[in-house]
Design a protein around this nucleic acid. Sequence first.
DNA 1: GCCGTTTTCGGCCCGACTGTTTTCAGTCG
Length: 601
Amino acid sequence: MRYNGNVKTNGNMNNLQIAELLRAVAAAYTVKSKSRFKFKIIAYERAADAVEHLSSEAKDLWDEGELTNVAGIGESIARHLGEIFTTGKSKHFEKVFSGLPPAMFDLLAINGIGPKTAYKLTSELSISKNAVQALKKAASSGKIAKLEGFGVDSEREILLGIGEYERKPEKRMLLPHAMRIADEIKDWVMRCAEVEKIEVLGSLRRRASTIGDIDMAVATNSPKIVLDYFGNYPKKVRLIEKGDKKASVLLAGGVRVDLLVMVPEAFGAALQHFTGSKHHNIELRERALGMGLSLSEYGIKRIKNKELRIKNFADEVTFYKYLGLSYIEPELREGAGEIESAANNNLPKLVELTDLKADLQIHSSFDIETSHDLGESSMREIVKKAESLNYEYIALTEHNPSQSGHTQKDVVEILKRKREMVDELNYSISQKQNYRVIKVFNSLEIDILSDGSLPVNDDGLATLNFALVSIHSNFRLNREKMTKRVLTALDHPGVKIFAHPTGRKLNYREGVELNWEKIFEFCLEQDKWIEINADPARLDLPDFLVREAVLKGIRLTLGTDAHHVTGMNNMRWGVDVARRGWAEAKNIVNTLSLEKFERLL
DNA sequence: GCCGTTTTCGGCCCGACTGTTTTCAGTCG
């Protein structure tokens, strides 16, 4: 639901709706006078970004009197939002929106239409409702081209924009999917002889959990040839734009690919610029201004000396160094304190894939009569795969036996059978001469029932080395009940790991509501561990919560949740999440050697 | 409207691309 300029709500706005409202305010100021309100507009846009990226609801923060502590939200915006939270509307915002057609805000969702264009179109075409449809009709009948300031080309662009808006899927790409597309384009571009280097940048390089656009940069001395070549990418749906410096194409499914070209000697600044994020770049440039420097994708120049040539950087390390900063890993570049840390030289030494000594969530095909999905690979196949990944140990974590059709006594019997199987496996591994010894831990992924109880009793738990617990049903309890549910489950003896803690499925299901403060506190006190599930459709714990957990000193684990040996290759995506959450090897339990892990256990 | 290595006033990231213009405005990343 798009904000339409009518400030009438029940006061229960979520962060997304608030962000939309604040952007609408910025748009309204833009229409009224872009020059007069220049900085107010920036402030509202920043506030919108800030709210959108909050990890708690703005309403809750306001209740606690913490809203003004959010960077980008000051007394004024907090007061207006407070008025909305209490009365459902804001007198000030109503004044800002007065005189503007509410329908214009619907058009802002279309690429290429900004505040001014939206205002012009809705007023001159007298559009009042079903704005997008009305605009489509006007464009199709050639009415837009006749308006002053428009022409047949802009009318065609608007129609294209509407078409893409209508087809645009809500879904963002999962990381591996985006990576495959990017690699394919990369392979194709590299076949152009003029290309010296090509790098995939943007949110892909920052390893965000979902990807919108794909950004790339090429080092070349023949920009025109490369851009022409790129513009002819055979899988494109259309060429969005092409200039001297960059070009953009649209792929099937609404995926946009931007390519920036740069001479090799200035490639470092281009990498930095196009890796972003926006917030990182803005913060970096503000810092540079304070040093009398101005940054761009071309390099760094001194402000007071414009005739001075721009300083080039072939790589990013020297670029950051010039600004008095240590090198900032792409995963950290979100404008979330990394620049300050780099200035103080206390950035974390991020965990790496090669630090991992184990995979702590794997499902084998050994049938323990679960009601959830069984794995497809045998225990032996999994051990062999673990060996190829240089692991020292693994945990086999099938879902618990189903409750229906099993008495608790049955369940214990089944678990004893599995225990014997794992014991035999460990014995046979230890007997093999040219086998690197991998220890297999006997574990289980146990459902957390609605009341926090577990479908496995203490005798069953006693057959395990340790247990994982996770939510697979009843995702919609309120925050308080859900928190109690989880804490009750974690409190059982033998339960060690809270697996895929939010239960989110990217693009399909939001995570559950939990009081993380309480969960973290409990985990810290009771030495319970929290999983970062490396399944690219989950990536759960999410990166921003990893950051909070790391700050609090919570022990984290990484597990692929593999249901087939190929799934064990997914560890890299989990490591990416850990890195985005500022995690070092010491924060991840399964970077420990087998000996240390057993001692900790 | 926000904010502080310029600290309660006076700044606020930087540039590319397109279309409709004839020097620029709007939009985007």
